[in-house]
Design a protein around this nucleic acid. Sequence first.
DNA 1: TGCATCCATTACCATATAGGAATATAGTAA
DNA 2: TTACTATATTCCTATATGGTAATGGATGCA
Lengths: 130, 130
Amino acid sequence: MNRKRNCINTECPQLKALDDRALDHVAEYFRALSEPLRLRILKTLQDRPHKVGELTELLDCSQANVSKHLAILMRHGMVERDAQGTSAFYRIADPRVYDLCDLVCGQMALRFASQAQLLGARPAGARSRR
Amino acid sequence: MNRKRNCINTECPQLKALDDRALDHVAEYFRALSEPLRLRILKTLQDRPHKVGELTELLDCSQANVSKHLAILMRHGMVERDAQGTSAFYRIADPRVYDLCDLVCGQMALRFASQAQLLGARPAGARSRR
DNA sequence: TGCATCCATTACCATATAGGAATATAGTAA
DNA sequence: TTACTATATTCCTATATGGTAATGGATGCA
C-alpha cells in the first residue's frame, strides 16, 4: 500500500477519522469547486489578484454572477477580498486549492488515457458494457 | 513559491493549462465528491469492498439511493463493480480519491484552527466582519 | 450637492438533483 | 415454469442553485 501522504505540515485527519458532520463540511468544500465558473475564477486569480470588473470582462459574464461566486469562494477561505476605493480586489487565500485541482487533472488524464487505450484495442462500434 | 507537486507519476496538467471544456470535467469530478452520502460510501469502501445491501444497512439509507450514488461514483472511475450472483460488490477503483479528501480535511482543519484562534482573541460577541 | 462608478444584494426564474416509491431486471432455487 | 432475492432504473416531488435583472450602498469626483 504505497499510500502517499499529501499533507505534511498539519495533523491532517483522514477520511476514516471523520464523523458525519465533518463529512458534510468536506462535501461543501468540494461543492464550492464543482462549478466551472468558479474554477475559471480561481484559474484567473492564479496569475495575480484582480478586481471584480476585470474578472467580469476576462470571464465574459455578468458582474452580479462574478460577485456571487466570489462570495462562495470567500466563504470557504479560498480567496480574500481587499477593498480599494470603490473597487474590490480578490486574491488567492489558500494556494493549496490548486493542489486539489492538479490532482484531479492528473487523475482525469490517466483515466482518459486508459479509456482511449480501451477504445483503441476494440473493433469500432464495440461497447465496453451492457 | 514552495509549490509542492502532488502528482509525480503522470504528466499531470495544471489548472493553468486547461481550457474551458477540460474545466467542465474537473468541475464534474468535484461535484461527484460534493455529496455527504457519496463520501460516506467512499469512507465505508476504504476498509474493504461491500455489497449494495451491506452499504444500505451500514449507511442507513434506501437501496435505490445507494445504487444511484454508486452509479455516479462509477461514472467517474472512483469505484468498480464486481457482480457475483445476484449481488454486486463495489470496491475502490482509484485510491487517490482519498488523497483529495485528506487534502481537504487538512485545509479545513487549518482553517478551523485559525478561526478558533480569531474567536479566542476577541471579546465575547465580537463579529469579525460586517 | 449631485452624479457616476463599482460592487453587493435581492428577487425571480429555470434547471439540476437528492430522495422516496414503485417498477424493472437479473440471477437463483424450487 | 413460478417464486424469491438483490440490484438497477424510472417516475415524481421538494429543494438547491446558477443565471439575469433590478436595486441598494459605498466611494470618488465635479
